[in-house]
Design a protein around this nucleic acid. Structure first.
Length: 153
DNA sequence: GCCAACGTTGGC
DNA sequence: GCCAACGTTGGC
């Protein structure tokens, strides 16, 4: 089992939206590294930290889990979508995604500031300077550290 | 295959 | 809205 962090902008899709919908295709990822992780490395049941970015309090808002095998992102075929990709065909789709299911929402967001204070998270990929990847791997230790911070909120 | 220009991300 | 960091594009 592997652990992940997936970013989302809460103005567009938040932990509350995930809670309401229970499960959501993680569409719109247009970065090859992130795609490769969804396509090659994720397994149904893998825990996912849901991270809110580009918002008032950036940080981890809750926990979800990988809920499907990879499959083509349907938005790449949709001319009306912002994520339409004319280079993609049904036969050779360029972008793959997984569904993410809701597990729980933290009582309060574990803020980026708080994450940065943790020695145990010093090497966390998502916190590395300049990292813009919307999906990153997380170690078990890092995952548990963050879950613990929430219970101490 | 190099690399400058350009676009995007995301914290501040 | 600024800007650092980094990915992508396209001319050569």
């Amino acid at each position: 089992m592997r652990y992940w962090l997936m970013k989302t902008e809460p103005d567009g899709f938040s932990i509350d939206d995930l809670k309401r919908r229970k499960r959501e295709p993680w569409s719109g990822v247009r970065n090859y590294q992130a795609r490769n992780m969804m396509r090659d490395d994720m397994q149904p049941g893998d825990p996912v930290l849901i991270y809110h970015s580009s918002c008032e309090i950036p940080g981890v808002a809750g926990i979800g889990e990988v809920a499907s095998d990879p499959y083509p992102d349907p938005t790449q075929f949709d001319r009306k979508s912002d994520y339409f990709d004319p280079r993609s065909t049904r036969e050779t789709p360029r972008w793959m995604l997984v569904d993410v299911a809701f597990r729980r929402k933290f009582r309060e967001v574990v803020s980026l500031d708080r994450l940065k204070e943790q020695k145990a998270l010093a090497d966390m990929v998502a916190l590395k300077r300049g990292n813009r990847l919307s999906i990153t791997p997380v170690t078990k230790r890092e995952f548990e550290c963050i879950a613990n911070l929430e219970t101490k909120a």
